[in-house]
Design a protein around this nucleic acid. Structure first.
Lengths: 335, 335
DNA sequence: AACTACAATGAAAGCGCTTACAGTTTGTTC
DNA sequence: GAACAAACTGTAAGCGCTTTCATTGTAGTT
């Protein structure tokens, strides 16, 4: 392996100087810089980042924990982060926590062992306490898609309540008054907040929330189908249904069609998340956009700001979702 | 920062012994092992992987180049690799090449600078020559989703020709004889091979390939739509259409519906790739499964085999795609 | 008791780089 | 041309760990 030492000998300088031209630190006379560059090229020198990191105590690497590598959801977030970190010459070390507490902690520990300069965490199983404790330590970290009051400065999340509100308000604006709600898991903050937004839109419009028009699901497509069937059994009337996410909306649409209801002519459906397939459905799914990419970008900016002192970055901690109007929502039929 | 040194002092042993218990190498008497463990716990010791890698000249890290972080396509592949590497206690360092030659080379270089033990590459812009040259060097590398004759041992890819063949054979088996083909970009090997498979199925069934029943697209949904419209202008008759990928199939289906053709009653459509949204379409898209996850797993196995000498792994270099029969293909109508 | 064969440990030399600090040039200014 | 600042470069001490080699402890044999 070619080392800095060999380069320095060939170039007739000290290894310190070689290091200086590699890192472009301090001032190096142009003539010697050229000599060093030539020697590096001739020897096929490759910088050893490991050794550099050890000596400088900086890795220029951000540890990144996501629940899964597959699925466009986290993919978009990572892509957003990668884009802004690349410009700053920082790298990401991505690991997966698989929504398992032990695994998540273990992976964070591994990231710390690798001496990451900072962490970006999307963890689902780890307790708030642990994260609070971690945030108090010396490694900068930002938590995405999760809001923890005590360390809100470290959190970047979406206003789910607002999203739920926008979805239902959209239906109301189209003239719907009998609006069913297919909720996600209510032990999750997202499920709870989206429902809260739904209720707020209702009450703001002077509509009362009818418990029997709501079914709790689990964010899976199957539970969207099941929800529609339950609603059918209850023999409730409704002209629109708001869903806790796109998967459930997709399941709901299929169930609706099986019951010979047309979407959107008979029933309007709105989803949440705006996942990739939303636009591939026919008609395209009206939904609430979850700006994962921007969240990823924001998280990276936060890191640049805190871990590398780049204070030009403007930061937002709670992003606002937007409605994406496609083909599954229609004006309510005249009475 | 707590070092091995401090631990060794507290435990009353040498730092070599501490290293031994950390790495579980050599034999350490149980009593001293416990002493060391206690000291580590008490001091809150965290192993420094950087220093360890530098000293041992092994990083236990696999460099991974993908075109993009978003999209389920590469996500599934990474997830597959991650699963098998995790079991072997290896980590992945994922970077993106964005299908740009310079960037891809740069990122590979960065991975090498980080002293990755091996590389898994899905690169699209880099030349065969460069990869061949790289493969001859000392770092083990496997190339996924690409076949290069000279280093076929390092390649893991899908039999695209077979996929194209299966898709069209499926249509033929359903009784279709007038089969249109919406091809992908023909300057890409995948596009070419899939088309070749289509032709083989045709000729095997005694059907002749009709150039005017084919349109070249670019793997995007829009080009699928456009393809159908072009076909309509040509006023050709067909009862089925095979598409180079699912996006194009989705576009084609929308265009077909716009022309008042029902899928699959009037026209059968088959895609390729089996992307996530394929099953969310209504009806579900009949397609050819591109087993990205398995390819990812296979790549990881190859690495374990070559870079870490785990020879228990069985390896396959060319994976076979399978047909996934869903709802967009039907028996051909009686004449 | 003397010997052998391991098992268990320690000493110390790196791994390849960064970075004070000190020392040497070089360029300016009066 | 002396004085001084600024620009440039070298020396050497680490960064925290692994690993070879040598040494010591510990049974088991004869």
């Amino acid at each position: 392996m070619v080392t800095i030492k060999q380069v320095s000998e060939m170039a007739g300088v000290s290894s310190a100087t070689v290091s200086r031209v590699i890192n472009n630190t301090d001032t190096v006379k142009e003539r010697t810089r050229v000599k060093v560059m030539e020697a590096m090229a001739k020897l096929g020198y490759r910088h050893n980042v490991l050794a550099a990191s050890l000596a400088s105590n900086k890795t220029n690497t951000i540890g990144y924990v996501v629940p899964e590598l597959h699925g466009s959801f986290f993919g978009n977030m990572m892509a957003g982060s990668e884009k802004v970190l690349r410009k700053a010459n920082k790298h990401m070390f991505v690991v997966t926590g698989h929504s398992d507490e032990k695994l998540e902690m273990q992976e964070i520990e591994a990231l710390l062992s690798r001496r990451c300069d900072a962490l970006i965490l999307h963890v689902e199983a780890i307790s708030d306490e642990y994260l609070i404790h971690l945030a108090k330590q010396d490694v900068p970290l930002v938590i995405v898609n999760r809001y923890i009051k005590e360390i809100e400065e470290n959190c970047i999340s979406l206003d789910n309540e607002l999203g739920g509100y926008l979805a239902t308000r959209h239906l109301i604006e189209l003239g719907h008054t009998q609006i069913a709600y297919l909720s996600g898991s209510l032990f999750k903050a997202d499920g709870l907040n989206r429902l809260a937004g739904h209720k707020r839109a209702l009450s703001e419009a002077g509509l009362s929330f009818d418990d029997s028009l709501m079914v709790e699901g689990d964010f899976q497509a199957k539970s969207g189908e099941a929800g529609i069937h339950q609603l059918a059994q209850r023999a409730k009337c409704y002209t629109a249904v708001a869903c806790a996410n796109d998967e459930m909306a997709s399941g709901a649409i299929n169930a609706l069609r099986a019951l010979n209801k047309r979407v959107p002519e008979d029933i309007s459906v709105v989803g949440f998340d705006n996942v990739d397939f939303a636009s591939y459905l026919t008609p395209g799914l009206t939904t609430i956009d979850y700006p994962m990419r921007e969240i990823g970008e924001m998280a990276a900016r936060w890191i640049l700001n805190r871990a590398y002192g780049d204070h030009k970055m403007s930061l937002t901690h709670i992003l606002e979702p937007k409605l994406v109007h496609r083909g599954t929502t229609n004006q309510a039929a005249e009475k």
